[in-house]
Design a protein around this nucleic acid. Structure first.
Length: 607
RNA sequence: GGCGGGGUAGCUCAGUUGGUUAGAGCAGCGGAAUCAUAAUCCGGAGGUCGGGGGUUCAAAUCCCUCCCCCGCUACCA
C-alpha cells in the first residue's frame, strides 16, 4: 500500500531510505484447482519492512506519497447499490495517493481491496460511500515540478488524471474522488485547523535542528558528526547547519491518555491487531508535539486567520491537510451536511502499514481536538513484492497497474491479489503465481464448471434450466454448502479477511466439481434424464450463489456468469442468497460462453 | 538492547487446554473418466514439525537454551 507522507517532529530523524527489498521465499506454483476448505488464513504476522521510509524530516512538508489511488469511476458493473434511507450506512476510504509520479501496483492493490470491501457491503445491504483521491500538496510535489520545469499545478494536472484513470481501469466503484487541491478541501482544512486552535491545541514555536541543504532533511544531533576540517556532517556525509524555523505546533502530547483510552475501548480500532499493539506501545512512551506548518515553501494550504505571524507565511504541513480529506468529502466543515451526518464517522480507513501511526495517532487526536468523532477502524494492509523478474520479460511493463490489467485482465488481477495474499500481510506476486491462480481457480475450477454444466443444459436440455426432482443427500449437501457461504463470508468480512471470503467461496466451487463428477450427469442423460435434470439444476444453483458472492471481487465476470444463469439484475444482492431464493427452474438460459478464459502464454516470438 | 511475531511436506500455509498412522491447497507421480476452457475426479508418495536439552506414560504442542527471519522501539558509537 502505500505510504504517505513523512512525519516529522521537530528534529525528526531522517530516514530516507525507502523500503528495502523483498524477502526471499520462493515462488509457488500451483495449478489445478485449489480451493481448500478450511481456510487458512492466518494472517498472523505480516512481516514487512518498511519502517524507514516513512518519516523523513526534512524541512517542510515533504512528501508522503505512495499508495492508494482513487477516482470515481462510473463503471462498476454489477454491484447494485441498495442504499435506501433505512439501510445501515458504511463509509470506507483508501488513503489518498501522492501523485508525484505514476500510480504503481501498491496503489492498485489498495484500491482493489477497498473496492472489494465496498462492493461487498453494498451487496450486503449497506448504504455505502467509498472515497479515494489524491494528496497533492507538499515539498516533494514542488521539487518534482521544479525538476521537470513545470509548476506544481501543472504537475498535478498531468499526474492526477492517471490516478483517476487507474481507479477506473481497475473497476473501482468509488463514489467520490477527492483532491486536496479542491477548493472544498482548502476550506475544510482551514476549518479543522481553526477548531483545533480554538481548543487551544495549536501554538507557535520553532522547529529546529541540524539541516542538510543537500539532503533537504533535518537530523538529530546524534546522527551528525564533526569532520576533521571542523564541518559538521549528516549521516549521508553532507554538511549540515543549525536551522530554526518558525512553525505552528499541535499539542499532540496532550492526547496521550485519550488515545490510550481509545485503543483500550476499541480493541479493533486498528487491524491487524499487531499493529494496534505497536501503536499503543509507541503512544505509551510519550508523545511529542507535532510541527504542523512550514514557511519555507508555499505549495500547500495557507494556515488560516491571523496565521501570518511576522513575515512568515505558513502553510499546513502534510498531515492536517492530508488526513482531513476524509471529512472534507462528506461535507465538512458543514457538519449539518446530510452526507456528514449520515456517513461520518467513517467505518473504515484502508491504508498501508507504513502510515498506521498517522492514522491511528495523529488523526484521532486532531479529530478529538476539533470535536469531531473519530473513525471506527483503521485497517493496515501489507506491501507487495515482485518475486523474480520474470514478469517483465515477455510482458514488458506489467508491473504498472495498467500493464497488469492489460496482460491478465482486471478481474483476474483483482482475484489474484485478494485471494493470494492474506489481507493485512505482505505479499508476493509473479507472473507464475498470477497465471496459476487465473488458470487453476478461475478457468479450471469455476469457469470450466460453469461451462460444462451450462453447455449441457444448452445441448441436452434445449437451453432450459431443468425442473429438479426430489433432492438426494448429495444434492442437499452441496446446496447446504452453498447456503453456508454467506455466513462464512460475513464472518470473515467482519475483520476484512478478504482472502478468507474467497477461500470459503472457492471451497464450494471445489465441492461442486466433486459433486458434478460424482453424479456424472453426462451418463445420466441416457439412463435417467430426470435425475440429470436435478443434478444440473443443483449445479446451477450452486454456481448462482458462488457468482453472487464473487461479485465484489470479479465484478465483470461475475455479472457475466449471472447473465448466463438468467439471474435478474435485481436478484443479485446477498439478500438473494440461500434456500429461500433458489434459481428459478424452467428458465430459458442464453447460450453459454466462457467467463474466465484460460491464460495462454503469448507466443514468444522470438528469434 | 528491550518488547512482540515467526521458523511444520518442493511451494504457500493450517494445526498448540500435550494423546491414535502431523493436515490442506498447489506442484509432482499413478489411475479413472471424457459432459467441459488439454478442463474434471480418485489414489500413493512426500515432513528429524529450526538445533540441542528437559518435564511427562505421551510434545509440533509445556519449560530451558541456542541459531535464523521479520516488526515496533531504544541506544551505542
Amino acid at each position: 500500500m502505500a505510504k504517505k507522507k513523512p512525519s516529522k517532529t521537530k528534529r525528526a530523524k531522517r530516514r530516507t531510505a525507502p523500503a528495502k527489498a523483498a524477502k526471499k521465499k520462493a515462488v509457488q506454483k500451483n495449478k489445478k484447482r485449489k480451493a481448500s476448505v478450511k481456510g487458512s488464513a492466518s494472517r498472523r504476522s505480516a512481516a514487512k519492512k518498511s519502517k524507514r521510509a516513512a518519516v523523513k524530516s526534512k524541512a517542510p512538508k515533504v512528501g508522503r506519497s505512495k499508495p492508494r489511488q482513487a477516482s470515481q469511476s462510473a463503471s462498476r458493473p454489477a454491484s447494485p447499490r441498495p442504499a435506501g434511507a433505512t439501510a445501515p450506512r458504511y463509509y470506507i476510504t483508501t488513503a489518498i495517493s501522492y501523485p508525484n509520479g505514476a500510480p504503481h501496483i501498491g496503489h492498485a492493490y489498495e484500491a482493489i481491496a477497498t473496492d472489494a470491501i465496498a462492493r461487498f457491503m453494498r451487496l450486503d445491504g449497506y448504504d455505502t460511500y467509498f472515497l479515494t483521491g489524491t494528496d497533492e500538496h507538499g515539498i516533494k510535489m514542488l521539487q518534482t515540478a521544479n525538476r521537470e520545469g513545470v509548476t506544481p499545478r501543472d504537475l498535478v494536472a498531468r499526474n492526477v488524471p492517471r490516478f483517476q484513470a487507474m481507479v477506473e481501469r481497475l473497476n473501482c466503484s468509488n463514489d467520490d474522488f477527492i483532491r486536496t487541491t479542491d477548493e472544498r478541501h482548502v476550506r475544510s482544512s482551514q476549518a479543522i485547523w481553526q477548531r483545533m486552535a480554538k481548543n487551544g491545541d495549536i501554538y507557535l514555536s520553532k522547529y529546529s535542528g541540524w539541516y542538510s541543504v543537500r539532503d533537504e532533511a533535518y537530523y538529530d544531533e546524534a546522527e551528525t558528526r564533526v569532520a576533521e576540517n571542523g564541518v559538521r556532517l549528516g549521516p549521508q556525509g553532507t554538511p549540515v547547519e543549525w536551522v530554526e524555523e518558525e512553525s505552528y505546533f499541535f499539542k499532540l502530547s496532550a492526547y496521550q491518555d485519550k488515545l490510550l483510552a481509545l485503543y483500550k475501548n476499541v480493541p479493533d480500532f486498528v487491524l491487524p491487531k499487531e499493529r494496534l499493539n505497536e501503536v499503543a506501545s509507541f503512544v505509551k512512551r510519550g508523545l511529542q508535539d507535532l510541527s504542523i506548518s512550514r514557511t519555507t515553501f508555499d505549495w500547500g494550504i495557507p494556515v488560516p486567520g491571523k496565521a501570518d505571524v511576522g513575515k512568515a507565511k505558513h502553510i499546513m504541513y502534510v498531515w492536517v491537510d492530508a488526513l482531513t480529506n476524509y471529512i472534507t468529502a462528506v461535507g465538512f466543515p458543514d457538519t449539518n451536511d446530510p452526507k456528514f451526518k449520515r456517513y461520518w464517522p467513517a467505518d473504515l480507513h484502508v491504508i498501508g502499514k507504513d502510515i498506521v501511526r498517522f492514522h491511528a495517532v495523529y488523526w484521532p487526536a486532531f479529530l478529538m481536538s476539533a470535536g469531531v468523532a473519530v473513525p471506527r477502524r483503521i485497517f493496515s494492509h501489507g506491501f507487495l513484492f515482485n518475486r523474480g523478474e520474470k514478469m517483465s520479460k515477455s510482458l514488458g511493463n506489467v508491473v504498472d497497474p495498467f500493464g497488469l490489467a492489460d496482460a491478465y485482465g482486471v478481474d483476474q488481477l483483482r482475484y489474484f491479489l485478494l485471494r493470494e495474499i492474506p489481507f493485512g500481510q505482505d505479499g508476493h506476486y509473479s507472473h507464475e503465481a498470477i497465471v496459476n491462480r487465473i488458470n487453476a481457480d478461475l478457468a479450471n475450477d469455476l469457469g470450466n464448471l460453469a461451462q460444462r454444466s451450462l453447455s449441457m443444459i444448452g445441448k441436452q436440455r434445449g437451453g432450459v434450466l431443468p425442473q429438479p426432482g426430489a433432492f438426494s443427500d448429495n444434492d442437499r449437501a452441496i446446496l447446504a454448502a452453498a447456503d453456508a457461504m454467506i455466513g462464512k463470508a460475513r464472518d470473515a468480512m467482519k475483520t476484512q479477511q478478504l482472502h478468507q471470503v474467497l477461500n470459503a467461496v472457492w471451497a464450494v466451487v471445489a465441492d461442486a466439481n466433486r459433486y458434478f463428477a460424482g453424479e456424472a450427469p453426462w451418463a445420466l442423460a441416457k439412463t435417467d434424464p430426470q435425475r440429470q435434470g436435478t443434478v444440473l439444476y443443483v449445479t446451477a444453483e450452486a454456481i448462482r450463489q458462488v457468482a453472487i458472492l464473487a461479485q465484489p471481487f470479479v465484478p465483470t465476470a461475475a455479472a457475466k456468469l449471472l447473465d448466463l444463469l438468467a439471474i435478474p439484475v435485481g436478484a443479485r444482492s446477498f439478500a438473494a442468497l440461500g434456500a429461500a431464493h433458489r434459481i428459478a427452474p424452467q428458465t430459458a438460459l442464453p447460450a453459454p460462453a466462457a467467463v474466465f478464459p484460460r491464460y495462454i502464454e503469448p507466443e514468444v516470438a522470438a528469434t
